[in-house]
Amino acid sequence: MNAFIQSLKKNKIGIVLILLASMSTASGQMFWKLSGGQWNRHLILGFLFYGVGAVLMTVAFRFGSLSVLHPLLSMGYVFALLLGTMFLNEQITAMQAIAVVLIIVGAVLIGGGDD
Score class of each variant (00 low, 15 high):
M1K: 10
M1V: 11
M1A: 12
M1I: 11
A3W: 05
F4D: 06
I5T: 13
I5D: 09
I5L: 15
I5Y: 14
Q6H: 15
Q6L: 06
S7H: 05
L8S: 04
K9W: 10
N11G: 06
K12G: 01
I13L: 14
I13D: 08
I13P: 07
I13A: 14
G14S: 10
I15T: 07
I15C: 01
I15G: 03
L17Y: 02
I18R: 01
I18K: 01
L20Y: 03
L20T: 02
A21L: 00
S22H: 06
S22D: 05
S24V: 02
S24Q: 06
T25L: 09
A26I: 01
S27L: 12
G28M: 08
G28C: 03
G28E: 07
Q29L: 13
M30E: 09
F31T: 01
F31P: 04
F31A: 04
F31K: 01
W32G: 00
W32R: 00
K33E: 08
S35C: 02
Q38I: 04
Q38H: 12
W39S: 04
N40H: 10
N40V: 02
R41K: 10
R41Q: 15
H42A: 05
L43G: 06
L43W: 11
I44G: 10
I44V: 15
I44L: 12
L45R: 09
L45A: 14
G46W: 07
G46H: 06
G46C: 02
G46F: 05
F47V: 06
F47C: 10
F49E: 02
Y50A: 10
V52A: 12
V52N: 03
G53C: 01
A54W: 09
A54P: 00
V55P: 04
V55K: 05
V55F: 11
L56D: 06
L56E: 03
M57P: 04
M57T: 07
V59H: 11
A60P: 08
F61T: 13
F61V: 10
R62F: 06
R62W: 11
G64L: 05
G64F: 10
S65T: 14
S65G: 01
L66N: 13
S67D: 12
S67C: 05
S67Y: 08
V68F: 08
V68I: 10
L69A: 11
H70V: 15
H70L: 13
P71V: 09
L72W: 05
L72S: 07
L72A: 03
S74L: 07
M75Y: 13
G76C: 03
G76K: 08
Y77L: 13
V78G: 04
V78L: 04
F79I: 03
L81M: 15
L82P: 08
L82K: 00
G84T: 02
T85F: 15
F87C: 07
N89V: 00
E90A: 00
Q91T: 15
Q91Y: 14
I92C: 08
I92M: 15
T93G: 13
T93M: 01
T93W: 06
A94Q: 13
Q96E: 12
Q96C: 00
A97S: 14
I104C: 05
I104K: 02
V105P: 03
G106M: 07
A107N: 13
V108Y: 12
V108E: 07
L109I: 14
L109N: 03
G111N: 08
G111P: 06
G111D: 09
G112K: 05
G113C: 04
G113F: 01
G113N: 11
D114N: 13
D115G: 13
